[in-house]
């Protein structure tokens, strides 16, 4: 799309877009292309003597039980994180939307965790859930009689990184749900109330269905968040451990590529992640377009 009235100039428009194009080429297209090439190549540890091996890196990857385990762990981790963050955000937003007093204060108190880095969120929760000092872990031991130890027990470690990742993301979801709820016409709610629908029924039958675009959008964003941005949580808190129990895909790419220096496998893993994210993006845009058509 372009304006009906536009400027004419021979060099200026190229000059204006040049910085963006240069940076995009240098740091997006060339690395992406390079990664794709590397994923089809086996090179020895010293970087010399590269050999083109078609899909062998990918085949090896999908035969590797460690990789498959990491895929499974990532799925569990991101679904739990997204579910926890979205449902808490929705719950708080629906409560805040009902509140008539102290609106600004309530919002302020629920928005600030947005600014906390995932890595710092990890540190805070590591302290709360620390097997020997953590306040919460002491209560867990007392109430559930469980032997809570996220440092040694894989399941406990997973719970810890899920909590740390979801906590930080609640505010983001809260902001979107609040905005979505305010976009719902008051007349709909009032009409339902006159017909005798209780507040709960109105929430289930009107607010929630009308929020479904927001819900879809947030699901996508939360999955992407928990796939990639949670790297900081994993790196500060568990380093993928104990025993690989929290070794999510993005952490494995880093481990294999930078620590293990396995170029081929790491590139193949990057390509898999890239395809995944492109797929998600395409799906999202498809859906958004549909939504636009429905509304007119």
């Amino acid at each position: 799309m372009i304006k009906r009235s536009f400027f004419k100039s021979r060099f200026l428009p190229y000059f204006l877009i040049l910085p963006q194009i240069l940076i995009t080429l240098t740091f997006f297209y060339w690395p992406a292309f390079q990664g794709l090439v590397n994923s089809f190549i086996r090179s020895d540890a010293f970087g010399g003597h590269a050999k083109f091996i078609w899909f062998e890196n990918f085949l090896a990857l999908f035969r590797d039980p460690l990789y498959l385990e990491s895929v499974f762990i990532t799925l569990v981790f991101s679904l739990c994180t997204a579910f926890l963050a979205i449902s808490s955000g929705l719950f708080l937003a629906s409560m805040a939307n009902r509140a008539l007093r102290a609106k600004a204060v309530i919002r302020t108190f629920l928005i600030w965790p947005y600014a906390v880095a995932p890595a710092i969120s990890g540190i805070l929760w590591l302290f709360l859930l620390h097997p020997s000092f953590g306040l919460v872990s002491i209560f867990i031991n007392k109430w559930f009689g469980a032997n809570w130890n996220p440092v040694l027990n894989g399941r406990d470690a997973m719970v810890m990184v899920v909590l740390a990742s979801a906590w930080k993301q609640i505010s983001y979801n809260f902001v979107f749900f609040i905005a979505g709820m305010q976009a719902i016409p008051k007349s709909l709610i009032e009409a339902a109330a006159i017909d005798g629908a209780s507040p709960f029924r109105r929430f289930w039958r009107i607010t929630l269905p009308l929020l479904s675009p927001t819900m879809f959008f947030l699901s996508v964003m939360n999955i992407i968040y928990s796939f990639f941005e949670t790297f900081g949580v994993i790196h500060t808190v568990t380093q993928g451990g104990p025993g690989g129990a929290t070794n999510i895909l993005v952490y494995k790419v880093y481990q294999d590529g930078f620590v293990g220096l396995d170029l081929g496998s790491s590139s193949a893993q990057s390509v898999v992640l890239m395809s995944l994210i492109i797929l998600i993006t395409v799906l999202q845009f498809r859906y958004v377009e549909k939504k636009v058509q429905y509304t007119g």
Binding site: I17, Q20, I21, T24, T26, F27, F28, Y29, W30, P31, A32, Q34, G35, N38, I224, F228, E229, F231, V250, V253, Y254, G257, F258, L263, S266, S267, S270, L273, M274, I277, I278, I280, T281
Partner: peptide, 24 residues
């Protein structure tokens, strides 16, 4: 072309292309 090529990078975080970007 300029618009499409920029737009294509919309969702590609640095995390999925770390090694080659590092080399770059």
């Amino acid at each position: 072309i300029a618009f499409v090529s920029v737009f294509c990078t919309l969702m590609l975080p640095v995390e999925v292309r770390i090694l080659p970007t590092y080399e770059m």
